Simulated scan of single mutants.
Amino acid sequence: MNQWKVICRVDDIPVLGARIVQRDGKVAVAIFRNSEDKIFALLDQCPHKGGPLSQGIVFGEKVACPLHNWNIELGSGCATAPDEGCTQRFAVHIEDGDVALDVQELAAA
């Protein structure tokens, strides 16, 4: 059973952008919002060279890593072919405009 922690409001995340959730001693989580107001959460680290995905360009349901332009699927965290590799995906819960993430996933390494 998920325990949800409200992080922000949907409107706090820029359209086609991201918001960062810092975690003690761990890589941050990036919460993305696409043009259809769909919300996704990924570890803020490209599987290629660790680039900050939160600084990438969101298009459709993907984000382009700002370092080497790898396209990462927001729903799965996986790179699109021909690139390979995945970054951690986080469960997202939206209720009444609040964006919440799973407490246990946030605490995990």
Rank of each mutant, 00 (worst) to 15 (best):
V99A: 04
F90S: 02
V15D: 01
E105N: 06
L74R: 00
I31E: 04
G75H: 02
V103A: 15
L67G: 06
I13Y: 10
P66I: 02
L43V: 05
D102H: 02
L42V: 05
W4C: 04
D37V: 08
G51C: 03
F40R: 09
G56E: 08
D83I: 04
C86D: 01
S76E: 06
V99W: 00
F40V: 10
A108K: 14
I7G: 02
V63H: 02
A91H: 12
Q55L: 06
F90H: 00
P52R: 05
A91R: 14
G56M: 05
F90I: 01
A28Y: 15
D102I: 00
G50D: 00
F59S: 10
H48K: 03
M1I: 10
R23G: 08
A107Q: 14
A30G: 14
V6E: 14
V58N: 06
V10S: 00
L101G: 01
V29D: 11
N71I: 11
I72W: 09
A41W: 09
D102M: 01
E73G: 09
D37A: 08
D98S: 12
L53P: 10
D11T: 15
F32R: 03
H68K: 04
A107M: 13
M1D: 11
I20F: 11
V15R: 10
R19Y: 13
R89C: 12
Q88V: 09
L43A: 10
Q3V: 13
E95H: 11
S76Y: 05
D83C: 11
D37L: 11
A18I: 12
K62R: 13
H93I: 02
R19K: 15
G56N: 02
R89V: 12
A108W: 07
L53W: 09
A100I: 00
E84H: 13
G51H: 00
A64C: 11
N2W: 08
G97R: 02
P14T: 07
D102Q: 01
R19Q: 14
Q45C: 08
D83E: 14
Q55I: 01
R89Q: 05
K5C: 07
L106S: 06
A107Y: 05
V63W: 04
H68P: 09
V21H: 04
V29N: 11
A108Q: 12
Q55R: 15
N2H: 13
H93D: 04
C46A: 09
S35F: 13
G75N: 03
Q104S: 13
I20C: 04
D11A: 15
F40A: 08
C46P: 04
D102R: 02
Q22K: 15
K26G: 06
I7M: 06
Q88A: 12
K38E: 14
E73D: 15
I72S: 12
C8I: 04
D37F: 07
C78D: 05
K38F: 14
K5W: 11
R9Y: 08
G60H: 07
I94E: 04
I20Y: 13
I13Q: 05
V63N: 01
Q55M: 08
G60C: 07
A64Y: 06
V29T: 13
I7C: 07
D44G: 02
A79R: 08
Q104I: 12
Q88T: 13
V29G: 11
G77L: 02
A109E: 14
A109D: 15
K38T: 14
G75P: 12
S35Q: 15
I57Q: 02
V21M: 00
V6M: 06
K62M: 14
Q22R: 14
K49D: 13
N34M: 07
Q45K: 15
E105Y: 04
D83M: 09
